[in-house]
Amino acid sequence: MHTPAESRTAPRWIFWLLPILALAIPLATNPYTQFIINAMLIYTLVTLGFSVVIGNLGQLAFANTAFFGIGAYASAMAGNALGLPWLLTVPLAGLAGAAGGFLASAAALRGIRLYYLAIVTLAFGELMRWFYTHAGALTGGTDGLALDRGDIFGLQLNSDTVQFYIFLLLTTLLVAGTVNLLRSRLGRAIVAVRENEIATASLGIATSRIIVTAFVWSGFVVGIAGAMFALHTGRVFPESFGLTQLIINFAMVLVGGLGSVIGAVLGAVALTALPEYVRAFPGMEEIFFGVIVMVVLLVMPKGLASLLRRVSPIFHETHHRD
Protein backbone atom coordinates (compact mmCIF):
# COMPACT_ATOMS: atom_id res chain seq x y z
CA MET A 1 0.00 0.00 0.00
CA HIS A 2 2.77 2.39 0.88
CA THR A 3 5.41 2.63 -1.79
CA PRO A 4 8.82 4.16 -1.12
CA ALA A 5 9.09 7.92 -1.51
CA GLU A 6 11.29 7.71 -4.62
CA SER A 7 8.58 6.01 -6.64
CA ARG A 8 5.80 8.19 -5.24
CA THR A 9 7.19 11.44 -6.54
CA ALA A 10 7.53 12.09 -10.24
CA PRO A 11 10.96 11.62 -11.85
CA ARG A 12 12.75 14.90 -12.43
CA TRP A 13 12.41 14.97 -16.20
CA ILE A 14 8.61 14.96 -16.06
CA PHE A 15 8.78 18.45 -14.61
CA TRP A 16 10.34 19.80 -17.82
CA LEU A 17 7.80 18.12 -20.08
CA LEU A 18 5.09 20.69 -19.49
CA PRO A 19 7.14 23.82 -20.38
CA ILE A 20 8.62 22.03 -23.41
CA LEU A 21 5.16 21.16 -24.69
CA ALA A 22 4.07 24.71 -23.89
CA LEU A 23 6.62 26.01 -26.41
CA ALA A 24 4.11 25.13 -29.13
CA ILE A 25 1.26 27.16 -27.62
CA PRO A 26 1.73 30.31 -29.79
CA LEU A 27 1.04 28.16 -32.85
CA ALA A 28 -2.53 27.69 -31.67
CA THR A 29 -3.40 31.10 -30.27
CA ASN A 30 -4.76 34.40 -31.47
CA PRO A 31 -3.68 37.71 -29.84
CA TYR A 32 -6.56 37.54 -27.37
CA THR A 33 -5.96 33.98 -26.15
CA GLN A 34 -2.19 34.59 -26.09
CA PHE A 35 -2.74 37.59 -23.85
CA ILE A 36 -4.78 35.44 -21.43
CA ILE A 37 -2.22 32.64 -21.43
CA ASN A 38 0.54 35.13 -20.65
CA ALA A 39 -1.54 36.28 -17.68
CA MET A 40 -1.77 32.65 -16.53
CA LEU A 41 2.01 32.44 -16.37
CA ILE A 42 2.15 35.63 -14.29
CA TYR A 43 -0.55 34.46 -11.90
CA THR A 44 1.13 31.07 -11.52
CA LEU A 45 4.02 32.88 -9.85
CA VAL A 46 1.76 35.13 -7.79
CA THR A 47 -0.17 32.11 -6.53
CA LEU A 48 2.96 30.06 -5.91
CA GLY A 49 4.60 32.79 -3.83
CA PHE A 50 1.42 33.30 -1.84
CA SER A 51 1.01 29.56 -1.30
CA VAL A 52 4.52 29.10 0.10
CA VAL A 53 3.73 31.51 2.93
CA ILE A 54 0.13 30.63 3.76
CA GLY A 55 0.24 26.96 2.72
CA ASN A 56 3.71 25.67 3.51
CA LEU A 57 4.81 28.08 6.22
CA GLY A 58 1.24 28.35 7.51
CA GLN A 59 1.37 32.09 8.22
CA LEU A 60 -1.76 34.11 7.58
CA ALA A 61 0.08 36.86 5.72
CA PHE A 62 -1.68 38.85 3.03
CA ALA A 63 1.22 41.00 1.90
CA ASN A 64 1.35 39.10 -1.35
CA THR A 65 -0.45 41.70 -3.43
CA ALA A 66 1.92 44.27 -1.96
CA PHE A 67 4.91 42.25 -3.24
CA PHE A 68 3.20 42.07 -6.64
CA GLY A 69 2.74 45.85 -6.73
CA ILE A 70 6.26 46.50 -5.43
CA GLY A 71 7.70 44.35 -8.24
CA ALA A 72 5.53 45.99 -10.89
CA TYR A 73 6.34 49.54 -9.76
CA ALA A 74 10.02 48.73 -9.26
CA SER A 75 10.16 47.53 -12.86
CA ALA A 76 8.20 50.49 -14.25
CA MET A 77 10.11 53.05 -12.19
CA ALA A 78 13.51 51.59 -13.05
CA GLY A 79 12.51 51.59 -16.69
CA ASN A 80 11.25 55.18 -16.63
CA ALA A 81 13.59 56.94 -14.23
CA LEU A 82 16.80 55.02 -14.90
CA GLY A 83 16.06 54.16 -18.51
CA LEU A 84 16.89 50.49 -17.89
CA PRO A 85 15.70 48.00 -20.48
CA TRP A 86 12.85 45.86 -19.12
CA LEU A 87 14.91 42.69 -18.86
CA LEU A 88 17.33 44.37 -16.43
CA THR A 89 14.45 45.58 -14.28
CA VAL A 90 13.38 41.95 -13.67
CA PRO A 91 16.06 41.12 -11.07
CA LEU A 92 15.48 44.54 -9.49
CA ALA A 93 11.78 43.77 -9.18
CA GLY A 94 12.63 40.42 -7.63
CA LEU A 95 14.94 42.06 -5.09
CA ALA A 96 12.37 44.75 -4.30
CA GLY A 97 9.73 42.05 -3.74
CA ALA A 98 12.19 40.11 -1.57
CA ALA A 99 12.77 43.26 0.50
CA GLY A 100 8.99 43.51 0.92
CA GLY A 101 8.98 39.87 2.02
CA PHE A 102 11.69 40.62 4.55
CA LEU A 103 9.59 43.47 6.00
CA ALA A 104 6.53 41.25 6.23
CA SER A 105 8.54 38.51 7.94
CA ALA A 106 9.71 41.04 10.52
CA ALA A 107 6.08 41.35 11.65
CA ALA A 108 5.82 37.56 12.02
CA LEU A 109 9.11 37.46 13.91
CA ARG A 110 7.88 40.10 16.33
CA GLY A 111 5.29 37.56 17.41
CA ILE A 112 2.48 39.07 15.33
CA ARG A 113 0.64 35.96 14.17
CA LEU A 114 -2.70 34.69 12.92
CA TYR A 115 -5.41 37.37 12.62
CA TYR A 116 -2.99 40.03 13.78
CA LEU A 117 -0.53 39.16 11.05
CA ALA A 118 -3.41 39.10 8.56
CA ILE A 119 -4.47 42.63 9.43
CA VAL A 120 -0.91 44.00 9.62
CA THR A 121 -0.06 42.62 6.18
CA LEU A 122 -3.36 43.85 4.72
CA ALA A 123 -2.50 47.29 6.06
CA PHE A 124 0.94 47.00 4.46
CA GLY A 125 -0.71 46.38 1.08
CA GLU A 126 -3.08 49.31 1.49
CA LEU A 127 -0.20 51.52 2.60
CA MET A 128 1.69 50.67 -0.59
CA ARG A 129 -1.40 51.48 -2.65
CA TRP A 130 -1.71 54.81 -0.85
CA PHE A 131 1.94 55.46 -1.64
CA TYR A 132 1.48 54.73 -5.37
CA THR A 133 -1.49 57.10 -5.43
CA HIS A 134 0.18 59.96 -3.56
CA ALA A 135 3.81 59.82 -4.64
CA GLY A 136 2.82 61.15 -8.05
CA ALA A 137 6.28 62.34 -9.06
CA LEU A 138 7.65 58.82 -8.74
CA THR A 139 4.65 56.65 -9.48
CA GLY A 140 2.44 58.74 -11.72
CA GLY A 141 -0.31 58.82 -9.07
CA THR A 142 -3.75 57.52 -10.03
CA ASP A 143 -2.87 57.75 -13.73
CA GLY A 144 -0.23 55.12 -13.19
CA LEU A 145 3.08 54.69 -14.94
CA ALA A 146 3.38 53.79 -18.60
CA LEU A 147 6.13 51.46 -19.74
CA ASP A 148 8.36 52.01 -22.70
CA ARG A 149 8.62 48.34 -23.56
CA GLY A 150 11.40 48.55 -26.08
CA ASP A 151 13.01 45.40 -27.37
CA ILE A 152 15.56 42.78 -26.45
CA PHE A 153 18.02 41.52 -29.03
CA GLY A 154 15.82 43.06 -31.70
CA LEU A 155 12.67 41.30 -30.52
CA GLN A 156 9.79 43.68 -29.89
CA LEU A 157 8.68 43.32 -26.28
CA ASN A 158 5.18 44.49 -27.03
CA SER A 159 4.62 41.28 -28.97
CA ASP A 160 2.52 38.85 -26.95
CA THR A 161 4.44 35.94 -28.46
CA VAL A 162 7.81 37.35 -27.40
CA GLN A 163 6.36 38.03 -23.96
CA PHE A 164 5.07 34.48 -23.81
CA TYR A 165 8.49 32.92 -24.32
CA ILE A 166 10.13 35.20 -21.78
CA PHE A 167 7.35 34.55 -19.26
CA LEU A 168 7.49 30.82 -19.88
CA LEU A 169 11.22 30.81 -19.18
CA LEU A 170 10.94 32.92 -16.02
CA THR A 171 7.95 30.98 -14.67
CA THR A 172 9.58 27.62 -15.38
CA LEU A 173 12.81 28.63 -13.65
CA LEU A 174 11.06 30.06 -10.60
CA VAL A 175 8.71 27.09 -10.28
CA ALA A 176 11.73 24.76 -10.55
CA GLY A 177 13.56 26.75 -7.87
CA THR A 178 10.51 26.59 -5.62
CA VAL A 179 10.15 22.84 -6.12
CA ASN A 180 13.84 22.39 -5.25
CA LEU A 181 13.43 24.57 -2.19
CA LEU A 182 10.34 22.75 -0.94
CA ARG A 183 11.89 19.32 -1.47
CA SER A 184 15.02 20.23 0.48
CA ARG A 185 15.74 20.37 4.18
CA LEU A 186 14.67 24.02 4.05
CA GLY A 187 11.27 23.04 2.63
CA ARG A 188 10.84 20.44 5.35
CA ALA A 189 11.81 22.99 7.98
CA ILE A 190 9.28 25.48 6.55
CA VAL A 191 6.49 22.92 6.98
CA ALA A 192 7.89 21.87 10.37
CA VAL A 193 7.50 25.46 11.56
CA ARG A 194 3.86 25.35 10.48
CA GLU A 195 3.28 22.02 12.21
CA ASN A 196 5.10 22.69 15.48
CA GLU A 197 7.41 25.65 15.80
CA ILE A 198 8.58 24.76 19.33
CA ALA A 199 9.57 21.24 18.33
CA THR A 200 11.32 22.61 15.21
CA ALA A 201 13.57 24.77 17.37
CA SER A 202 14.35 21.73 19.54
CA LEU A 203 16.06 20.18 16.51
CA GLY A 204 18.61 22.97 16.32
CA ILE A 205 16.75 24.83 13.57
CA ALA A 206 16.67 28.63 13.85
CA THR A 207 12.96 28.99 13.16
CA SER A 208 13.17 32.76 12.66
CA ARG A 209 15.64 32.19 9.82
CA ILE A 210 13.28 29.69 8.23
CA ILE A 211 10.38 32.17 8.44
CA VAL A 212 12.50 34.90 6.84
CA THR A 213 13.61 32.50 4.08
CA ALA A 214 10.01 31.60 3.17
CA PHE A 215 8.83 35.22 3.13
CA VAL A 216 11.84 36.49 1.17
CA TRP A 217 11.54 33.75 -1.47
CA SER A 218 7.81 34.43 -1.72
CA GLY A 219 8.50 38.14 -2.19
CA PHE A 220 11.19 37.44 -4.78
CA VAL A 221 8.95 35.21 -6.90
CA VAL A 222 5.96 37.54 -6.69
CA GLY A 223 8.14 40.60 -7.29
CA ILE A 224 9.30 39.11 -10.59
CA ALA A 225 5.67 38.35 -11.43
CA GLY A 226 5.11 42.07 -10.86
CA ALA A 227 7.72 42.99 -13.48
CA MET A 228 6.04 40.57 -15.89
CA PHE A 229 2.68 42.15 -15.12
CA ALA A 230 4.07 45.62 -15.88
CA LEU A 231 5.30 44.44 -19.26
CA HIS A 232 2.09 42.55 -19.93
CA THR A 233 -0.28 45.45 -19.30
CA GLY A 234 2.11 48.21 -20.42
CA ARG A 235 1.01 50.47 -17.56
CA VAL A 236 0.87 50.03 -13.79
CA PHE A 237 -1.97 51.53 -11.71
CA PRO A 238 -2.46 51.63 -7.94
CA GLU A 239 -5.85 50.00 -8.41
CA SER A 240 -4.27 46.84 -9.86
CA PHE A 241 -2.86 46.02 -6.43
CA GLY A 242 -5.87 46.45 -4.20
CA LEU A 243 -8.13 44.12 -2.28
CA THR A 244 -9.85 42.71 -5.37
CA GLN A 245 -6.50 41.48 -6.64
CA LEU A 246 -5.73 40.00 -3.23
CA ILE A 247 -9.05 38.15 -3.03
CA ILE A 248 -8.58 36.68 -6.50
CA ASN A 249 -5.01 35.60 -5.64
CA PHE A 250 -6.25 34.04 -2.42
CA ALA A 251 -8.98 32.21 -4.34
CA MET A 252 -6.34 30.91 -6.79
CA VAL A 253 -4.33 29.45 -3.91
CA LEU A 254 -7.36 27.74 -2.39
CA VAL A 255 -8.90 26.52 -5.65
CA GLY A 256 -5.54 25.04 -6.67
CA GLY A 257 -4.75 23.56 -3.27
CA LEU A 258 -3.05 25.20 -0.30
CA GLY A 259 0.71 24.57 -0.21
CA SER A 260 0.81 22.66 -3.49
CA VAL A 261 3.03 23.68 -6.42
CA ILE A 262 0.86 21.88 -8.97
CA GLY A 263 -2.12 23.48 -7.28
CA ALA A 264 -0.65 26.95 -7.75
CA VAL A 265 -0.39 26.33 -11.49
CA LEU A 266 -3.89 24.86 -11.73
CA GLY A 267 -5.48 27.56 -9.56
CA ALA A 268 -3.84 30.34 -11.55
CA VAL A 269 -4.80 28.83 -14.90
CA ALA A 270 -8.38 28.06 -13.87
CA LEU A 271 -9.16 31.41 -12.29
CA THR A 272 -7.45 33.40 -15.06
CA ALA A 273 -9.55 31.59 -17.65
CA LEU A 274 -12.80 31.66 -15.72
CA PRO A 275 -13.54 35.41 -15.94
CA GLU A 276 -13.14 35.16 -19.72
CA TYR A 277 -15.87 32.52 -19.85
CA VAL A 278 -18.29 34.27 -17.50
CA ARG A 279 -17.87 37.41 -19.59
CA ALA A 280 -20.59 35.90 -21.77
CA PHE A 281 -23.04 36.89 -19.03
CA PRO A 282 -22.67 40.67 -18.75
CA GLY A 283 -23.56 42.11 -15.37
CA MET A 284 -23.43 38.66 -13.79
CA GLU A 285 -19.65 38.05 -14.07
CA GLU A 286 -18.83 38.47 -10.38
CA ILE A 287 -21.75 36.32 -9.32
CA PHE A 288 -20.78 33.50 -11.66
CA PHE A 289 -17.16 33.76 -10.65
CA GLY A 290 -18.02 33.68 -6.95
CA VAL A 291 -20.47 30.79 -7.25
CA ILE A 292 -18.04 28.66 -9.26
CA VAL A 293 -15.24 29.26 -6.76
CA MET A 294 -17.58 28.34 -3.91
CA VAL A 295 -18.75 25.16 -5.61
CA VAL A 296 -15.17 24.04 -6.37
CA LEU A 297 -14.15 24.57 -2.76
CA LEU A 298 -17.21 22.77 -1.44
CA VAL A 299 -16.64 19.77 -3.69
CA MET A 300 -12.84 19.79 -3.39
CA PRO A 301 -11.76 21.48 -0.19
CA LYS A 302 -8.16 20.40 -0.91
CA GLY A 303 -8.29 22.07 -4.30
CA LEU A 304 -7.74 20.91 -7.85
CA ALA A 305 -4.38 19.38 -6.93
CA SER A 306 -6.16 16.78 -4.77
CA LEU A 307 -8.04 15.67 -7.90
CA LEU A 308 -4.73 14.97 -9.65
CA ARG A 309 -3.37 13.12 -6.64
CA ARG A 310 -6.36 10.82 -6.84
CA VAL A 311 -5.61 10.12 -10.50
CA SER A 312 -1.98 9.16 -10.02
CA PRO A 313 0.53 9.01 -7.16
CA ILE A 314 3.13 10.76 -9.29
CA PHE A 315 1.30 14.01 -8.51
CA HIS A 316 1.92 13.43 -4.86
CA GLU A 317 3.94 16.26 -3.37
CA THR A 318 5.60 16.05 -0.02
CA HIS A 319 4.39 18.08 2.93
CA HIS A 320 0.83 18.90 1.84
CA ARG A 321 -2.03 18.38 4.24
CA ASP A 322 -4.39 15.67 3.09
Binding site: E195, N196, A199, T318, H319, H320
Partner: peptide, 11 residues
Protein backbone atom coordinates in the same frame (compact mmCIF):
# COMPACT_ATOMS: atom_id res chain seq x y z
CA UNK B 1 4.40 14.81 21.46
CA UNK B 2 6.45 16.95 19.13
CA UNK B 3 6.12 15.21 15.77
CA UNK B 4 5.10 17.07 12.61
CA UNK B 5 1.81 15.33 11.71
CA UNK B 6 1.72 16.26 7.99
CA UNK B 7 5.30 15.13 7.34
CA UNK B 8 5.98 11.46 6.78
CA UNK B 9 7.84 9.45 9.39
CA UNK B 10 10.96 9.60 7.20
CA UNK B 11 10.67 13.36 6.75
Amino acid sequence: GGLFPALTVLE
